[in-house]
Amino acid sequence: MSGEAGALPLAAPAVPRPRAWLVGVVIFCALALAPLAVPFVGGNYLLLIGSRFMILAIAALSLDLLIGYGGLVSFGHAAFIGIGAYATGILAVHGFTEFYIAIPVAMLAGALFALVTGAVAIRTRGVYFIMITLAFAQMAFYVMGSLSAYGGDDGLTLPSRSLVFGSAALKSETVFFYAVLATLIIVTLALRRLVASRFGRVLQGLRQNRQRMEAMGYSAQGFQLTAYVIAGAIGALAGFLLANSTEFVSPAFMTWQRSGDLIIMVIIGGGGTLYGALVGALAFLSLEEGLSHVTDHWKLIFGPLLVLFVIAAPGGIARWLGWRAHE
């Protein structure tokens, strides 16, 4: 077959799933309107559930940057949530309750943990990377559990939610809900720009064909570590919100099962699209919520569902994600 015969007509660059952003708009609009339903259904419970969904969605979005775009299967993402939450809690205990202190400190803590552990993990690939990220997250879990000054295994109760320039506005569940929504939208838009940027292209290129990228002169580790640090900082931001949502932090925020849950969210929504992570978080929490109404032992149903999903996905998860090349 000659090149000319098979030529495609000149078309706009093929963006995978071109209407994906519509999903985002629909979800954001629905969320923005949700508090209006509070008087009729669920009451504050609706807001709590909604906030929880959005917080996990923020964490899932940042994990999608690693898995979906970078091909870096990090199995320790819950650690960043925990670190952000603990940073917020510990600051609050010592009287630093302003959000403009807590957010940067939490994100820096997440970024720093990502930098140090990522520097080790990024040097390895494949199975090693999965195991090392898991191991470091478990380390963070144990360390937090051993901080007896901050509650140890029992966790730590926050004196109050973060203040906004001295005001306790976040006490209102409605205000807090909208604050989380605003954060979610900002994170989504920022990541959208990031993945389309020069950096984003390099990150995706490294996933598709690392050898080719290195032959062009790109050093993989620097780019991947940077992505890991960014994702860690955003994960910690989700932790800041989670600590405020529950007014409590504990090592349970950062169990390895939680890291697994986050991967599931990214994958079932279809990784590498960002909006997929939103859908995935929504689907996961709906399943959890729905199944746990059916039975307390909802994992007896969810576990096999997950196994079936993986086995049934034709060509495997990678194909499901639209990855055509795979190392």
Binding site: P16, R198, R201, Q208, N209, R212, F223, G322, W323
Partner: peptide, 23 residues
């Protein structure tokens, strides 16, 4: 050895990028 998910143009643009300012 190409980047299969990117378009042909994106493949070359990424190569240009390697020599044209910071990534």
């Amino acid at each position: 050895s190409v980047l299969p998910e990117f378009t042909v143009l994106e493949n070359v643009a990424l190569s240009v990028q390697a020599r044209s300012g910071s990534s």
